[in-house]
Design a protein around this nucleic acid. Structure first.
Lengths: 163, 163, 163, 163
DNA sequence: TTTT
DNA sequence: TTTT
């Protein structure tokens, strides 16, 4: 059994960050992936793919990705269902990311978004599915820099190359 | 922009074969892909992923895959939507296969399924979304053997190996 | 930065199991993946891809895979180099597996291979690159059954299904 | 049988463009893909993966990619071998790209590289493995813009969206 | 509910 | 609507 997905596309909106009742972070976003071919009217179309990430990667995504950001996602397809408001079953398909790649150089602003916009809190306030954690999860601080691989030309010195 | 999916799983039912009004074959099936981890109750779960294939691969799938068949799919995620019967928009996510792999040895029966069961026709009869083609599409005959790579131990002679 | 590989093919030989000096298991095998197209002489060819796995997955591979086994590999490409015996640099490309899938039903024999053939030990004896571990690594016992998804019914009770 | 690779990384050098005796374009480049983890000395390392593309995509790559360019590659692993100069067999592993993605906005310069630098010709002159084509292949002109998805607005009118 |  |  194999279930593997790789996507590169652009976020249609800012990510939404939530916490499970036990305090685990989860972020959702939609990736617009332009198709390489045109439809019968000769127009380019896109696929709009629901993605979700967990834990520290969720907080990184909420901090560093914005509407329009170019991002890569490796993960798997996850299907599920829930009871719709009309009592009918609604089926869902998401890509659960094992890792998220930031494919654009970090933009000018020095600090991650939540410290300036308060938007993450706003997101949590709108949250219905999940409660907010009673206690601060211990990985709230963003220690890693997810841009470490994306910010510059990789600075490959000729001496480093094994050829 | 990258959109790539690889799946290996088992069909939950026989594939459904249809034809577009212009006579292009399309097959649909659902792949059950067991997860490698258990849920909080310690149970194994699966993802049920809608797959679709076009043209000759569609006819091959209809001929050679059955409920329970182990199959591999390479393709891309395609999203769309349609008007539900209650007027609400319903969003869809499918994997469109570029290629389908038959990962089980061909079973005993000598001939492909449609010649014996008539089931493919039955499927077409139930078809609502697509009309039947007015004329026979010219690739009705299944010329290729999609099992060419799956039926036996690959018969790798030691002399063939480059090491 | 993304580096993702999915392979399904057959082992050209039994896997080779080794241990690092610190006692970490590693298995190597070559996967023959038949091409879907023919060369200019109309012959089918294959790619022979070096794979390696670590830790418990290495021991599972050594126990349950044999020459000719159909297996799936998810992982990443890893390149490296070493000094050849003639002093020249030799470049290597391997697929390091994050997970290995057993795509054939377990065969008749009741016990895993190493308990009957002693071959794994023979492999270790031929090992040059790595020493044998001084102490038994604590995961020598194979507790998990990697065939859990490939052989028998996963026992999905109707009540478990979310639809 | 499945053989699928997805890479995102940066070119270690400009691509090399060659032509087969029958006039088919082929480009080679090496993609440096930084690892997401560090080695035991705490250093980031990278994998250096040989990639090759054919036909119009080869010419696009030669025209639009440069040392340091961020690119995505979808393809398959291809292994082969040739007789080394010391008579010993040398084994090769390449990723043959089905498609190449340009993940950086086109830079300022108006025209593709070969029209200004003459470098492509220089590459051909150094070519040993392949001769130059006797006649101009008929796809020399670059008609498509491979940046169509990476630079400017794809111009999705609201009316086009299916939701 | 759609990005560049 | 779910496979082995």
């Amino acid at each position: 059994m194999i279930n593997r997905v790789v996507l590169v596309g652009r976020l249609t909106k800012d990510p939404e960050l939530r916490y499970t009742p036990s305090g685990v972070a989860m972020a959702r976003f939609i990736l617009a992936v332009n198709r390489t071919f045109t439809n019968q009217q000769g127009e380019k179309e896109a696929d709009f793919i629901n993605c979700l990430v967990w834990r520290k990667q969720a907080e990184n995504a909420a901090n560093y990705l914005r509407k329009g950001s170019l991002a890569g996602v490796e993960g798997r397809i996850q299907t599920g269902s829930y009871e719709g408001q009309d009592g009918k079953r609604v089926y869902t398909t998401d890509v659960v990311a094992d890792s998220v790649q930031y494919l654009e150089p970090r933009n000018g602003q020095a600090s991650p978004n939540n410290s300036t916009t308060g938007q993450t809190l706003e997101h949590q306030r709108r949250s219905s599915e999940y409660q907010q954690p009673q206690t601060q999860p211990n990985y709230t601080r963003v220690d890693e820099d997810p841009f470490v691989n994306s910010s510059g030309p990789v600075e490959v010195l000729d001496d480093d190359l094994p050829f």
